[in-house]
Amino acid sequence: MIYFKTQRLVFRDWKEQDLNEFRIMNKDTRVMKYFAKTLIDEETDRFYNIIQDEFRNYGYGLYAVETRHNNGFIGFIGFHWANFNSQFTPCIEIGWRLKYEAWGNGFATEGAKACLKYGFETLEFNKIYSFTSKINLQSENVMKKIGMVKVMEFEHPNIIEDSLLRKHVLYAIELNQMKV
């Protein structure tokens, strides 16, 4: 199923053939630079199953994204039910992960803007959060470009204490803040 499109992107259900490309993407050290580690196939498969479960349980999730010019899978952009132990969770998180070859084209910003619009107008969300490690300036810049506002910094409870990735920034946007 296709959920929505932008000028350059298609947001759709995952296809079985996406899984192998997703595995490769999650092994790429450039893509996973701001994560605790790259993922082995079994970890990607578990994550893929979580994504599928969220679509079944909530009616939304991390949409498979492809480019319109060649229908090539480039990663995901969409929503995730974040429920780790923190003062702002559980919450709806917007997130993205794209193949390295897709970086630098504005796809994350274009796609995240479209997701916010879909989330507020179609899914009727009231508030959407996003977070990343403080050193991930590229993702933080996307959050700013799509109109999100910094709420706070926090220590991510699922990341070991001495890791450079533990300190996170939290951004949020509410329906009334959405620019059309």
Rank of each mutant, 00 (worst) to 15 (best):
E42Y: 12
K134P: 00
Y100I: 01
Y129A: 01
T122R: 10
W14K: 01
K37C: 05
T109P: 03
I146F: 11
S139V: 10
V180T: 09
P157S: 01
L116S: 07
E42A: 15
Q87T: 13
N158M: 10
K150T: 03
S139F: 08
M1Y: 09
N83F: 05
A108Y: 11
R97L: 03
K33H: 02
P157Y: 07
L98Y: 07
E140P: 00
R68P: 08
W81G: 00
F35K: 01
I92N: 12
D53S: 10
F76W: 15
N136E: 00
D41E: 14
K150I: 11
A82I: 12
M152L: 15
I94R: 01
E153Q: 14
I173G: 03
N83P: 02
Y129K: 02
L123E: 13
Q138N: 09
W103F: 11
I173V: 12
I94C: 08
Y48M: 09
A108N: 04
R8E: 11
N158G: 15
N83D: 15
L123Y: 03
C115M: 01
K99C: 11
G59P: 13
T132N: 04
N70M: 11
F55C: 05
N26W: 11
T29M: 04
T29E: 14
T29C: 03
R68N: 14
E54F: 02
M143G: 09
F11D: 05
D53N: 10
M32I: 04
M32C: 05
E93Q: 15
F73C: 00
A102T: 07
T122Y: 05
A172Y: 11
E42Q: 14
E121T: 14
G72V: 12
G75S: 02
I51A: 09
S139H: 04
F79N: 09
F55E: 08
F4R: 03
F4N: 03
V151Y: 07
G106S: 08
T132I: 04
N70Q: 13
C115L: 00
A36Q: 12
M178K: 05
P90M: 06
E54T: 11
I92K: 13
S130G: 15
G111Q: 00
L123S: 09
E155R: 04
T29F: 04
Y129S: 03
A112S: 14
L39C: 07
K145W: 03
L9C: 08
G104P: 12
F125Q: 09
I40Q: 13
E121R: 15
S130I: 06
I50E: 10
I146N: 05
N141F: 02
I92R: 10
K37F: 00
E43F: 06
Y3K: 09
G106C: 05
I160L: 10
D45K: 10
I173A: 07
K15E: 08
F88V: 11
I51P: 10
W96A: 14
H80F: 14
I77E: 13
E43D: 13
N126G: 14
E54C: 06
H168W: 08
E54D: 08
V10Y: 13
W14T: 08
I159P: 08
M152N: 12
T29R: 12
Y63M: 05
F55H: 07
F131S: 10
Q17N: 14
E21D: 14
M148P: 10
G75T: 00
I128H: 01
I50A: 05
F73T: 00
M25C: 04
I40P: 01
V180W: 06
L170G: 00
E93W: 12
F73I: 02
Y3E: 09
C115Y: 01
K5T: 14
Y63F: 15
